[in-house]
Simulated assay, not measured.
Amino acid sequence: MQARRAVAAVLLAASGNVALAAAPAACRGTIYLSFDTGSQSQAQFIANTLRRHHIKATFFLANEKTVNGDWSLDPSWAPFWKSLVADGHAFGTHTFDHVYWQRDLPGGKMVVKPQFGANGGHKLTWTAAEYCDELKRVDTRFAELTGRHLDPLFRAPGGHTSPNVLAAAASCGYAHVGWAKAGFSGDETSSDAFPNTVLLKRALDHLKDGDIFMAHLGIWSRKDPWAPADLEPLIDGLEQKGFCFATMREHPAYQEHATK
């Protein structure tokens, strides 16, 4: 009897050790993955990869021309955006027509240059209210496509902001989300000058706790796309270092900007 108890105790201890060994280690830090719209050539690949790894990210949306010949906020993209909503991601506005800030003017006005839309390629002078209207256009369309509103977050195209841009956005409840220096994926750069192996190593070597990482759902100009080569190795490498992932809703600087 005592021998059987001794064996049982050993087995119980062993099973406990196995359970402890299998338990995930505590996160040593958090990385905030974010993706801007683009050509959408890598959109489904990115969504599938995040889903496979059970990772939540933040997406910033503009109505951009896609490789399918349509636009990223057309009804044809509704199933894609609905699937991301169901996966629990966060969403912000990237201005509807991908509007670049040019310079500030007195009285809170600004000169801007939309990339797309009826005024694509033309410089315009906007008031703060007009800039807010541009941010809200994405929210309205996203709600039409998915039944869900955006989180009150925005990312200016190119990351270019100004006192007037930030004040205008704040007046209608939007906080700007940039990215860390180490969080620039480099997917907009030349793949000849900056091959994916270089971009991956740079990210893995320098990303640290709290950093926001930025990439696109496809870039027209890059010959060797970033995502198929680097996204999964990046996730694997960061997880091996003990990092976890979260949306901007969990970021200390943006927690007050929860879903509307």
Rank of each mutant, 00 (worst) to 15 (best):
S15N: 10
N68A: 15
F35K: 01
G183W: 01
N17A: 15
E144A: 11
F91G: 05
G107W: 03
P114F: 06
F80K: 00
Q40G: 05
F194I: 00
C132A: 08
Q2N: 13
L204C: 10
G120C: 08
V111I: 11
A180F: 04
K65E: 13
C132K: 01
P228W: 09
D74E: 13
L231A: 05
E232M: 04
P114Y: 02
P233F: 14
A43F: 01
S162Y: 05
S185F: 00
V112R: 00
H251Q: 05
S83V: 06
W126H: 00
D97E: 12
G16L: 14
V18H: 04
N17Y: 15
F184M: 11
T37G: 12
S34C: 13
T127D: 00
T58A: 14
L50F: 08
L135I: 06
Y174H: 10
G16R: 09
K109W: 01
R28D: 06
A6Y: 09
N164D: 05
Q40A: 10
E134C: 11
R5T: 02
A26K: 13
T95E: 12
R51P: 02
H176E: 08
T197N: 09
T247M: 12
E232F: 02
N68D: 14
L153Q: 03
A8N: 06
F184V: 09
F96Q: 03
H54R: 15
F142N: 00
G159Q: 03
G237E: 02
F243Y: 15
R103L: 11
Q102W: 06
G237L: 10
W179A: 10
W226Y: 02
H94C: 04
R5A: 15
K223E: 07
S171A: 14
A246Q: 11
I55F: 15
K208M: 05
E134W: 02
F184K: 04
P114S: 07
L145A: 03
T95L: 15
R52G: 13
H176C: 04
L50Q: 07
V67K: 02
P152V: 07
R148H: 09
T58Q: 13
D74S: 15
A23M: 13
G38W: 02
